[in-house]
């Protein structure tokens, strides 16, 4: 029962933190929409072209804008020592990584998930394709959260080159992009592709606590 209370209080704290920094998340979403505008201006407002490459654009920009918020993932809590306090409060590093990943999914990715329908209207994506995009992003965004957790915990002690964290996320998200965009173009293969995505999710979710926990421990040891 105690562990349940600790989890609830962990999310209470995350909620308070994210509420006070809500404009950061909103800025991320604005970045997403402004990049859509710029994409449309750069390829011209031709309806056919836009709707044929629309899904790819949405996915790319979602990936780019969710890597923007990576810096906040562990960095703040690491610098003010809250990570250590959570650990001393009886949560192992791997468990902290899992909780943080869910928190990132809830407070950063869900707002993106909600803004997808508006993006689809802007990009002329048909309604039946919207369902595929939505379901693929629901799984894909969780994979992105796990990857973000791994890469940002790796780069906690890296003061010189933070962009490396985004590059790591992007290089590992290549298969996700391939399969998620494939879902829309190969509609008859929907079930098999969604199973592949789900398989990737399980692999990444299994690696995440191990890799992030080890990196968190390392950074706290040598800080």
């Amino acid at each position: 029962m105690m562990i349940l209370n600790k989890i609830i209080s962990f999310y209470y704290r995350e909620y308070k933190l994210n509420l006070s920094g809500f404009q950061d998340i909103l800025t991320n979403i604005i970045f997403f929409f402004v990049s859509i505008f710029i994409f449309i201006f750069s390829i011209g407002p031709d309806k056919e072209t836009i709707s044929s490459i629309g899904i790819g654009i949405v996915w790319t920009l979602l990936l780019l804008s969710s890597t923007l918020s990576l810096r906040k993932f562990y960095q703040d809590d690491f610098e003010n020592g809250n990570l250590l306090i959570m650990h001393l409060n009886g949560l192992s590093f791997g468990f902290i990584a899992i909780l943080k990943t869910f928190s990132h999914f809830i407070f950063v990715q869900i707002p993106f998930l909600l803004s997808i329908p508006i993006a689809c209207i802007l990009l002329n994506i048909a309604n039946d394709e919207l369902i595929y995009l939505f379901s693929s992003f629901a799984i894909g965004s969780f994979i992105l959260s796990c990857l973000g957790s791994i890469s940002s915990s790796m780069n906690l002690m890296n003061q010189r080159n933070f962009l490396l964290g985004s590059v790591i996320v992007m290089i590992f998200s290549v298969p996700i992009i391939i399969f998620s965009v494939g879902i829309v173009s190969l509609e008859e293969n929907f079930n098999s592709l969604i199973s592949i995505l789900f398989g990737i999710l399980l692999i990444v979710f299994a690696i995440n606590p191990w890799a992030s926990g080890l990196c968190l421990k390392l950074s706290l040891e040598n800080n």
Binding site: N158, Q159, N161, L164, L218, S219, N222
Partner: peptide, 8 residues
């Protein structure tokens, strides 16, 4: 190249 602390 970019980490300062060797152990990390």
């Amino acid at each position: 190249l970019s980490f300062e602390n060797r152990i990390v």
